[in-house]
Design a protein around this nucleic acid. Structure first.
Length: 850
RNA sequence: GGGCGCGUGGCUCAGCGGUAGAGCAUUCGCUUCACACGCGAGGGGUCGGUGGUUCGAUUCCACCCGCGCCCACCA
């Protein structure tokens, strides 16, 4: 640090630091990834791509800051940090937004129109456009969002390499997604099946188990009679009487003596008079309702199990849009012993939604006398698609699946190999894997997503041959089967007999997001890069998407690379509002992040975010941001003090200085270990605590000496010690408060603090020729004595500068002997002796009595 | 029903087998030459409850109560 060039502002301030340093970091490529390094030298991060068709909220700022602290720490430790940023623009939220914004609807049967331009304002009637046109509009709209997001992230100070961004709907992501899919298809791990599937009737799409949520709904138990030819009617209870026409059997527990005589016999459904068998199955619960249940195709997932295991027929009545379809009674599969009555009753239900059909059928059942008593209202949990408005139905359709059930053991093993921060989050993953109910349905009947890269031959009779999909060569990917043509066919053959048809579906958004390491690492187009970053070091994410994003990424990496996708998963919590509820847009309690950054400063907001323990849900607290802002201001001022008179400098010989630095070196040691294990909050707290004591105790104690009141050697020791401490503290704070630390660093050091090496305990003690265990107590005891003087003076309402004489307890007196002059000057003690006193006694030398 | 987390001063949270901590808020005092966006000091808690282990428990164990989240085949 010889020949320091120091340039101090007159009045340091935080205002404007974000703009100044954002621009500088960008211009100088401070955070650029340098790819010329081997895997061992790289620290790679699989960043969560935020959904761009919403807006960023405080929760994003919170968790992304945690990741940034780790990225900055690793960079300073000497790692080459691979820190890309993705945008999740793929999927339903964008689709909905584009429909409303431009007034368009996607019609995948239409051909691409290269000259299409959307109207200035959305018209009354939506314009139908092709899937490629629709996707172009999605891309156009999301670009604007992405720019706004990037601006916010830069303002927050994320040390992302902005030349490495990706979008989940981008060409690269589509290529990765389609290639990985085709490889799974070839290995038989991806397959399609016509089967009962969870279905959202508003989105008219299949959904996956991972996208379900339970919501409490009002419902009612209806006790319903099923007639028998010889004997009293059987009474069942159901919350969904409208599904009686879809009933295919009754079921009771095999050990249930009440119903054992009925097993194997037939009963007749009310109104429709359909003969259905009475079956036995262990899943039937004798305690529930009347102990005997009706099986419908399909009321819930248990029905699916029963239907499959008891080999029952299908009588499906709910159409993909949720309405009851028309049924001709006495046609095959719809046999009734009174078809005329069945038809008359059912005609009341056709084309109704489930809710309306329920009301109607209860009237019919009451009239026919098949309803026993009145419905008993209950509240119960019903499965919903997490983005949906109506309960899910189960509808039979052709869908694509990725096998997961047979890999459950391997996936549990992967979960054990992964290092979780905090450790207990592992349970959520294991819980989820253990609870998997079926393979992963990845197809969605939507448009803005990655298409399945397959076509099907069309037979001469016009029927589609789903069993023999036509796949493109990987070199053609990405493709859109709705516009691209399979090799060996012509455009004219689309949808024609002896021609082909494109798969109409798109992949679930997680089917693409589960490949973010491959997308960000440029798996296919830049295998050299991929080898330098994969498997990645860190996946940061929130705990609510362990079952989706984390799980599916582990699965895909296991299948494709036979490895974990990353070594560590750092799980962050949520931001809660003061009522302990998750902050979310729908609850209307979200503060816009940019306003927060402007009000409290990015460093202030980051301080709040990084004060939270990893994984912990945290209260939104502007008070903490103010504290962080004050800390940043204090840094400016303390640094100004240390630098305003940095001469003379020389060997650090004073025990007080050596003690302070010895203590700092042990902070550095602990901080490094804690950050290695992702405990960033602890490091911030401890560094902050050291820093305040450094300001309030150490700087006050050495003030007089450094101003030259004693010897030049003493001043030199203090000045040098202050600069070592400042340099060290700035680097410890740099990951947390990147703007203020960079500002202060720039006053007296070359280059960016964010490229400076992380401090080491060895480096600190080298400045004093090795750790000085004798000096440490000098610092501690002297600072305690200073505090004791302050306490006594405050107790007697004296200003700190009131002169006094002091008597100190003997041991203390001896221990702080080497720092006595500093102490007397700081505490304004004229003369000092030791004696038989508790701690210390003062005699004030002003007029008033002590 | 199963799992996980949490319950510490008015608030937000640390901590931890050995006589309770921080910040905010509050009260009192200080125009101290880095900082009034400042400085110093004080008051304030039987660490959810009950048992157990221990010389000693807020800290370990068991059970219970409360809050939150995740999961479950919720007729």
């Amino acid at each position: 640090m010889d020949g320091l060039q120091i340039s101090l502002p007159d009045k340091p301030a935080l205002e404007g630091l974000e703009a100044k340093w954002m621009a500088r970091w960008d211009a100088e490529g401070t955070y650029r990834f340098d790819r010329d390094h081997a895997r061992a030298e790289v620290f790679s991060i699989d960043t969560p791509p935020p959904t761009v068709s919403g807006s960023l909220h405080v929760g994003h700022v919170f968790s992304f800051t945690h990741t940034d602290v780790i990225a900055r720490f690793q960079r300073m430790r000497g790692k080459v940090v691979f820190y890309p940023m993705g945008w999740d623009d793929n999927g339903l939220p964008t689709e909905r937004r584009v429909q409303n914004y431009y007034g368009v609807r996607c019609d995948p049967s239409l051909p691409y129109d290269p000259s299409f331009q959307p109207p200035e304002k959305p018209g009354k009637h939506p314009i139908s456009i092709s899937r490629p046109n629709f996707i172009e509009l999605c891309a156009r709209l999301t670009v604007e969002d992405e720019q706004a997001f990037e601006a916010l992230w830069r303002h927050l100070g994320l040390s992302v390499d902005w030349s490495r961004t990706y979008a989940t709907i981008g060409k690269k992501a589509q290529k990765v997604s389609q290639t990985a899919f085709l490889r799974l298809l070839e290995r038989g791990i991806a397959y399609q099946l016509e089967a009962p599937t969870l279905w959202d009737v508003d989105f008219r799409s299949a959904v996956a188990q991972a996208e379900l949520e339970d919501r409490e709904q009002d419902a009612a138990y209806h006790r319903i009679k099923f007639a028998r030819t010889n004997g009293p009617a059987v009474e069942i209870e159901t919350t969904r009487p409208e599904l009686i026409p879809a009933c295919v059997a009754l079921v009771a527990h095999p050990d249930d003596e009440r119903y054992q005589p009925l097993f194997g016999s037939e009963v007749y459904s009310p109104l429709f008079q359909v003969p259905v068998p009475v079956k036995a199955h262990a899943l039937a619960d004798p305690e529930k309702g009347s102990g005997i249940a009706m099986i419908c195709t399909f009321g819930d997932l248990t029905d699916v199990t029963w239907w499959r295991e008891l080999s029952l027929p299908v009588r499906a009545i709910v159409m993909p849009n949720g309405a009851f379809r028309a049924v001709t009674w006495d046609s095959p599969g719809w046999e009734s012993r009174d078809a005329a009555h069945a038809q008359a009753a059912y005609d009341h239900l056709a084309n109704l939604s489930a809710v309306k059909a329920r009301v109607r059928i209860v009237e019919l059942l009451r009239d026919s006398g098949d309803l026993v008593g009145e419905p008993r209202p209950i509240k119960h949990l019903v499965k919903f698609y997490e983005k949906g408005d109506r309960p899910l139905e189960i509808i039979t359709s052709r869908q694509w699946f990725i096998k997961t059930m047979e890999f459950r053991g391997a996936l549990l093993e992967r979960g054990k190999q992964l290092r979780w921060h905090p450790e207990y989050m592992r349970h959520r993953y294991e819980n989820w894997v253990n609870g998997l109910a079926g393979d992963w349905c990845i197809s969605r009947q939507r448009f803005f997503g990655v298409p399945f890269p397959v076509w099907y031959p069309v037979h001469a009779d016009g029927s589609t041959d789903h069993a023999h999909p036509i796949v493109p060569d990987e070199s053609r990917l990405p493709i859109d089967p709705s516009t691209d043509v399979p090799d060996g066919y012509t455009h004219a053959q689309r949808n024609q007999p002896n021609g082909f048809v494109g798969d109409p579906d798109v992949m679930d958004t997680w089917a693409t997001s589960s490949l973010t390491p491959q997308i960000a690492g440029d798996w296919l187009d830049d295998p050299d890069l991929f080898a330098r970053v994969f498997p990645m070091d860190l996946r940061p994410q929130a705990h609510d998407i362990i079952r989706t994003w984390l799980f599916s990424t582990v699965l895909r990496s296991h299948l494709e690379h036979d490895s974990l996708p990353w070594a560590n998963a750092a799980i962050s919590g949520w931001v809660l509002d003061p009522d302990r509820k998750k902050m979310s847009k729908s609850k209307g309690n979200v503060v816009t992040p940019m306003a927060l950054l402007e009000e409290h400063g990015s460093d202030g907001v980051r301080y709040w975010a990084t004060s939270a323990r990893p994984g912990t849900d945290t209260a939104f607290e502007p008070g903490q941001m103010k504290v962080g802002r004050r800390l940043a201001i204090k840094l400016l001022n303390a640094a100004k003090f240390a630098l305003m008179q940095a001469e003379p400098r020389g060997p650090i010989i004073e025990p007080l200085d050596r003690g302070m630095l010895t203590s700092l070196s042990s902070l550095v040691k602990d901080a490094t270990e804690k950050l290695e294990s992702y405990d960033y909050a602890w490091v911030l707290t401890q560094t902050e605590s050291f820093f305040w004591s450094f300001c309030d105790d150490y700087l006050e104690l050495v003030k007089s000496r450094r101003y030259g009141d004693f010897t030049p050697q003493g001043a030199a020791s203090a000045n040098s010690a202050m600069l070592v401490a400042l340099s060290t503290l700035l680097r410890l704070f740099a990951p947390y408060l990147p703007f203020v630390t960079e500002e202060v660093w720039s006053w007296w050091r070359e280059g960016s603090v964010h490229r400076a090496p992380w401090p080491t305990p060895e480096e600190v003690v080298a400045e004093i020729g090795g750790a000085d265990v004798n000096a440490d107590p000098v610092f501690v005891v002297t600072k305690d004595a200073l505090r004791a003087v302050r306490r006594v003076k405050a107790l007697h309402k004296r200003a700190i500068k009131t002169p006094a004489t002091a008597v100190l307890e003997k041991v203390r007196f001896e221990k702080m002997q080497p720092a006595m002059r500093d102490f007397q000057a700081a505490a304004h003690i004229r003369s000092l002796s030791f004696g038989d006193v508790q701690e210390l006694e003062l005699t004030f030398l002003d007029d008033s009595p002590a």
